[in-house]
Write a protein that binds this DNA or RNA. Structure first.
Lengths: 347, 347
DNA sequence: TCAAAAGTGTTATCCTTACACCCATGT
DNA sequence: ACATGGGTGTAAGGATAACACTTTTGA
C-alpha cells in the first residue's frame, strides 16, 4: 500500500490522499491509451468503474480480487466503452478472465480533493455488484477468490458469534466512552449497540456497511491511511484492502444480503441444478447465519421458486436428494413482486 | 426541445442525440467557469448532477422543475464542489433558491456516444432524490412545483383507476400483438400485464419505472427524440420533459414509493407537527393509493413512529384532532431496522 | 448399527385485513 | 340533525417460528 504501485494500480488512480505516488508506465494495451491521452490533455475528473464480483464455492462466499495485494478489479471508464456496464465487463474480463453474468449498480462516490502533479484531481468511482455462478468460478491469471470473512471476520455467525466480535465489543465500548460530551457518548454507544447487537439485541446481518463504518470511525480498521489508532490482528479486524475497496466490498455484501430477501438473486450464484440443502447452504453463506431447514424448504416451495428436475443427487453423504432447478418463469411472474406493506383500503 | 437552448440548458449538455445545438454563452457565474475551461481543454467526459426534488403540498405530490419547459434542476460537477452531494445542493439552491434537506443517490448512467464539435462526447449523470418539507415549499425565481401526476397520469389511483389507464391498456395490447414472433408477443403481453395490472392482477404502485419504460418501448411516450409512434393527449400519456428527465423522475418516484414502506422517510416531507390523517394523506399522495384509516393508525402507533405534542388541531372540518410529531429517536432505534424474512434457525 | 442428510407434519403465535362502530365538532 | 373527520375494537385468515419426527442412504 505504501510501496510503489503494483501492476493493477496502473489502471486507476488511487483514492486515498496519502498515496500520491502513482505513476504511469508500462500500460497494458488499447484500453489504456485514451486514459493516457486524457491525462496529457489535462482532464481533471477521473471516472473509474469498480466491481464487487461475488460467488459462493464450497459453502464459502467469495470475492474476486486481483494482484498481490487485496484489490477489487477496476479501471477507468473510456470513450471506447459502449456503456458503463460494458466498460465494467471489459475491465473485469481483461483483468481476470472472468466474463460477468448478473450486474447491478451499487453506488457512485467522489473522493476528497487531491493534488496530482500540481493539479487538482478528482476521482469518481462507480461501483457495481456482479454475481458469478459456482461452476464458472476458476482461478486465472493475476486474480484470486477470497472469502468475504477474511475481510470481515465478525460477519460470519454460522458457527455462533465469532471470537472477533467480543474483542471488538470491548473496543467499541471503550471508544464510545472516549467521546467528549455526554450526548456523543450515548450516541456512539447506541449506534454500536444496534449494529453489533449488544445487550441481547438481535443480530442483523444486513448492517454490514454500518458495522464497517463504525469500526472505521473507532479507529479499529487497519487500512493504510485509514488512521487506525489501534492495531488488531487480522483475525479480529480483518484483512485490509487497497484504498477504500473494503468499504465498497462491505457495500456489496450489504446489498446482496438484503436483496436475497426480496428477489431471487441466489439463483445467479448456484449451479443449474441443486439440492434444496445446497441452496440453503448458499443462502447461509451469504447471510452468514444458519437457517431452519423445514421452514426454508416450505418458503422456497410455496413461492414456487424451483421445480424438480426428476434426477437425484447421490453424493449427499446421506439419503439421496431430489435435484431442483430455478423456475425462470418467476422472473416474469407477479410472484417476483413482493407484498405491499401499506394497509390499503378496500382491495 | 428542438428550439434553441433555454437558460437552464446552458449549464448542462443535452443528453439526447438529436439535440446537438448546445452552445456556451451568457454563463451565470463562478460555478460555471471551470466548466468552460474544461471544455476548452478538450475534456470529453461530462459529469452532471441532477435532482428529483419532491414535496407534498395540499395532498398532491410535487416535483421541482425549472425553466419554461419541464426540466429537473441540474448542473455539472465542478472541482470547486466539496462533494457530489454538496455540488447538487449548490446547483439546486442556485437555480431555485431552495436549500435541500434529505438527499439520497438514485442512479448513475451514461448516455450513448455523441459527437460534439467533431469530438466524441460522453455525458454521465448522477441523479439524486431530495425531499423538502411542506412548510419550506415556496415558488421562487425560475422554478415551479408540478404534480407528479401531470407527468404520469396513470399513476394516481386515489380515485380509482384513472381513465388514462384503460386507453393505455388498449394501446399496450395492440403493441404486444405487433411483435414479430410468438414468444415476443407473449413476453410483451406478460410484462404489460404485470406492470399495468391486467386481468384482475393487483396494482403495484412501486412499478412506476417499469411502466414508464414499457410505454416508452411501446412508442406511447411523447418525449422529443423518443421516437413516439403514436401521439396521445397529455392527459393520457402525460406531459413530456426535457431529455430523459421524465425517466429520472420515474426512478425517483419508484424509489420513494418503495422506501416509505421500510424507512420513515415520510417525515422528511411533513410539517413538524401533524394530525394522523394529514400523515396518511401524505403517504396516499406518494403511493397514489388510498389507505385504510384504522389500520394505518395502528401501524404508525405500534411502530412508535410518532408521539403526541399535547396540542390539538381545530381546523379539521370535524372533531379536533390530536397533533403528533415524529419520534426522532426511531432513527437511531432498532425499530428503524426491519425484519429478516429469512427463516433463521433457533433464535 | 450409526451417522448424516432428506424429508414431512403440527402447533402456537403474530401480523395483516376487513369491517363495524362510536365520538366530537361546526353548520 | 347531519356532515365531516377523529378515534377504538374485534374477528377471520394467513404467514412465520419452533420443534418433533420419519425415511433413506453409505460406512
Amino acid at each position: 500500500m505504501t510501496r510503489g504501485p503494483a501492476w493493477y494500480t496502473l489502471n486507476r488512480f488511487s483514492r486515498v490522499t496519502s498515496q500520491s505516488t502513482a505513476t504511469f508506465c508500462n500500460m497494458q494495451d488499447q484500453a489504456t491509451r485514451n486514459k493516457n491521452s486524457n491525462a496529457r490533455e489535462g482532464r481533471d475528473i477521473n471516472l473509474d468503474l469498480i466491481a464487487v464480483v461475488a460467488a459462493v464455492t464450497d459453502r464459502e462466499p467469495c470475492v474476486l480480487t486481483i494482484g498481490e495485494q487485496d484489490a477489487l478489479p477496476s479501471g477507468p471508464f473510456e470513450l471506447s466503452h459502449r456503456s458503463l456496464q460494458s466498460g465494467l465487463r471489459d475491465w473485469v474480463e481483461q483483468q481476470t478472465g472472468h466474463p460477468l453474468g448478473y450486474i447491478e449498480q451499487l453506488y457512485t462516490f467522489a473522493d476528497r480533493d487531491r493534488v496530482e502533479a500540481g493539479r487538482k484531481q478528482r476521482n469518481i468511482s462507480i461501483s457495481y455488484l456482479a454475481l458469478i455462478r459456482q461452476e464458472a468460478v476458476a482461478v486465472s491469471r493475476n486474480c484470486d477468490w477470497k472469502s468475504w470473512y477474511a475481510y470481515f471476520p465478525w460477519e460470519d455467525h454460522r458457527s455462533g458469534a465469532p471470537d472477533a466480535l467480543s474483542i471488538l465489543h470491548r473496543r467499541l465500548i471503550a471508544w464510545a466512552k472516549g467521546a467528549s460530551s455526554m450526548a456523543a457518548r450515548r450516541e456512539r454507544r447506541q449506534r454500536a449497540a444496534i449494529a453489533f447487537a449488544f445487550d441481547d439485541r438481535p443480530w442483523n446481518e444486513d448492517l454490514t456497511l454500518q458495522r464497517y463504518e463504525l469500526l472505521f470511525e473507532a479507529g479499529l480498521i487497519g487500512e493504510a491511511g485509514g488512521g487506525a489508532s489501534i492495531t488488531l490482528p487480522a483475525t479480529v479486524s480483518g484483512k485490509p484492502m487497497v484504498c477504500d475497496h473494503r468499504r465498497i466490498l462491505a457495500t456489496g455484501i450489504a446489498r446482496l444480503r438484503s436483496k436475497i430477501k426480496y428477489r431471487p438473486v441466489v439463483f445467479e450464484l448456484t449451479r443449474p441444478s441443486f439440492t434444496l440443502l445446497q441452496l440453503q447452504r448458499t443462502v447461509e453463506a451469504l447471510a452468514g447465519r444458519l437457517i431452519n431447514k423445514p421452514n426454508f424448504r416450505r418458503l422456497v416451495e410455496q413461492q414456487e421458486l424451483v421445480e424438480e428436475t426428476g434426477e437425484t443427487a447421490l453424493d449427499t453423504g446421506g439419503r439421496p436428494a431430489k435435484l431442483f432447478r430455478f423456475r425462470r418463469a418467476v422472473l416474469d411472474d407477479s410472484a417476483a413482486v413482493v407484498g405491499t406493506k401499506l394497509p390499503l383500503a378496500r382491495a
